[in-house]
Design a protein around this nucleic acid. Structure first.
Length: 273
DNA sequence: AGTGCGACCTGATCGC
DNA sequence: TGCGATCAGGTCGCAC
């Protein structure tokens, strides 16, 4: 579910709520996530104070005192909700972290594709999926030069390349499709056939679409909620994603859907080449 | 090495 | 109403 804008929205809602909070109790109700929740997960968190909430690509990094960090990935359907302690539990609430304040944070993930680990800050580099993340389109290092260097040596289709977290950190299927519509390139277009002018436009369109989605607090089709359990609004502003058969905002032609691998890509056959 | 595909898991929805 | 097929915002491992 959550791509960069959703994770960033969660980060922004949670940061002021849990910064400085002290953890008094941790309950793991189901350890079966993408990587099983470690048996010492609870003891690593308890009595720690939260220093900050950061984001790297689609990962949330909850910084703790004495150099520990709680790394969270929400997979496809994960939620991280801050609420008063003691409310009834949902079937898929897997982790509950209680604070001295009488509030708690719940990790909820029906599909269990998510990840939750507590490690030393200095050991972050030992997790390849984290340390090998590519440039964040909202980061300072992002540039058209970088995107061009990635694209000119790839034989892949644009949509697939944009989803590769080792190259670009944070894009998922929604925003990859939306960004490609913005620049008039089809998801199936081979990366190395795109000229430098269009590559430059892509380098601008990608962060622009992500910022716009953050402004609307993410996209909620069904599952996604922010840290306060509120829906986002960007589903009302999508131009192509999930709009098969609907009119293109540019030319009124019908949006098409194609299967690419196991998932769908959406584009306007008139406006995108 | 780079690329593409199926697997992982549950729930919602659609057609019959 | 019931049932199977299909689909979903992600990532990983394997085979070529």
């Amino acid at each position: 579910m959550p791509e960069l804008p959703e994770v960033e929205t969660i980060r922004r809602t949670l940061n002021p709520l849990i910064r400085g909070a002290k953890i008094v109790r941790v309950q793991v109700l189901d350890r079966r996530l993408r990587i099983p929740v470690a048996l010492d997960f609870e003891s690593r968190l308890v009595n720690k104070v939260i220093a900050n909430v950061r984001r790297k690509g689609k990962y949330l990094l909850v910084g703790l005192d004495s150099d520990w960090v709680w790394v969270i990935h929400l997979g496809m359907a994960g939620k991280l909700i801050y609420l008063a302690s003691g409310l009834p539990r949902d079937r898929h609430d897997h982790i509950i972290v209680e604070f001295t304040s009488g509030y708690e944070l719940r990790f909820h993930d029906p599909r269990r594709f998510g990840l939750s680990i507590v490690i030393r800050e200095r050991d972050l580099g030992q997790w390849p999926s984290l340390s090998r993340l590519g440039e964040d389109p909202l980061g300072l290092q992002w540039s058209s030069t970088y995107l061009h260097s990635v694209m000119r040596r790839s034989r892949r289709r644009l949509r697939d390349l944009l989803l590769d977290q080792r190259l670009i950190a944070g894009l998922g299927n929604i925003y990859a499709n939306e960004a490609l519509f913005q620049v008039g390139l089809r998801p199936t277009r081979r990366a190395r056939t795109v000229n430098s002018k269009l590559t430059q436009q892509m380098a601008v369109a990608i962060p622009r679409v992500l910022r716009e989605a953050i402004r609307w607090r993410g996209t909620s089709f069904s599952d996604y909620r922010d840290g306060k359990n509120r829906k986002g609004e960007f589903q009302n502003h999508l131009k192509v994603y999930n709009r098969e058969g609907k009119p293109c905002h540019n030319c009124s032609g019908k949006i098409k859907r194609v299967r690419m691998g196991n998932r769908s890509a959406f584009y306007c056959p008139t406006c995108q080449s």
